[in-house]
């Protein structure tokens, strides 16, 4: 709502309307992009559209052929992920920047990123397995993910233990 108010304010002010109207009719979308680009509400509308279309399609398909419904759910998840990839990259870039400025060793940040990636992939696979009513395989996949995450965290745990041992008299 606040976005709409700001849009109407921008449209009514002389300066902005001059600026945008001189660019012709097709530039109203540019105005919208300028205003909504920071809020990203357009992106969420697209994601919701894909999700709702997928839900209704799969609702019909699950009664007819459950195996196709499984693949459809997989594709819907992938599509939604592909829409948010560049946002995730922005967040990761900010994290990298902060870590560089704070002087944190890249070993730690890369380990954390790897853990997040493995957690995401594991979650994805286990959800697909659960959708197919294969709860046992989903549990095994989650177990494997946890073990690999602990394995990745070993250098950090070792570093903490070394520090503690050094601190002790």
């Amino acid at each position: 709502m606040t976005v709409l108010i700001s849009v109407s304010k921008l449209l009514t002010t002389q300066n902005a309307s001059c600026q945008y109207s001189s660019w012709g009719l097709g530039d109203r979308s540019k105005l919208w992009n300028d205003l909504l680009g920071e809020v990203e509400s357009v992106e969420i509308v697209r994601i919701l559209g894909i999700a709702l279309v997928a839900v209704f399609l799969l609702l019909i398909l699950r009664q007819l052929r459950p195996e196709f419904a499984l693949l459809g759910a997989l594709v819907a998840g992938l599509l939604i992920f592909l829409l948010i990839v560049d946002k995730i990259q922005g967040v990761l870039g900010l994290l990298q920047e902060l870590a560089d400025q704070a002087g944190i060793s890249s070993l730690y940040l890369h380990t954390i990123l790897k853990v997040i990636g493995i957690a995401y992939l594991t979650e994805f696979a286990s959800q697909v397995a659960k959708d197919a009513n294969e709860g046992a395989i989903a549990a095994k996949v989650e177990l494997a993910g946890k073990i690999i995450i602990i394995f990745l965290a070993l250098p950090i745990i070792r570093a903490i233990l070394d520090t503690v041992v050094k601190l002790m008299p």
Partner: peptide
């Protein structure tokens, strides 16, 4: 039908794995 759909999906899935791998430094 399942095989055909799987062939359609497999490219998207490979792209997804590749993206996650490059993004999270795996």
């Amino acid at each position: 039908g399942v095989v055909i759909v799987l062939l359609l999906v497999i490219q998207l899935l490979a792209g997804f794995f590749e993206t996650v791998r490059t993004m999270f430094n795996l």
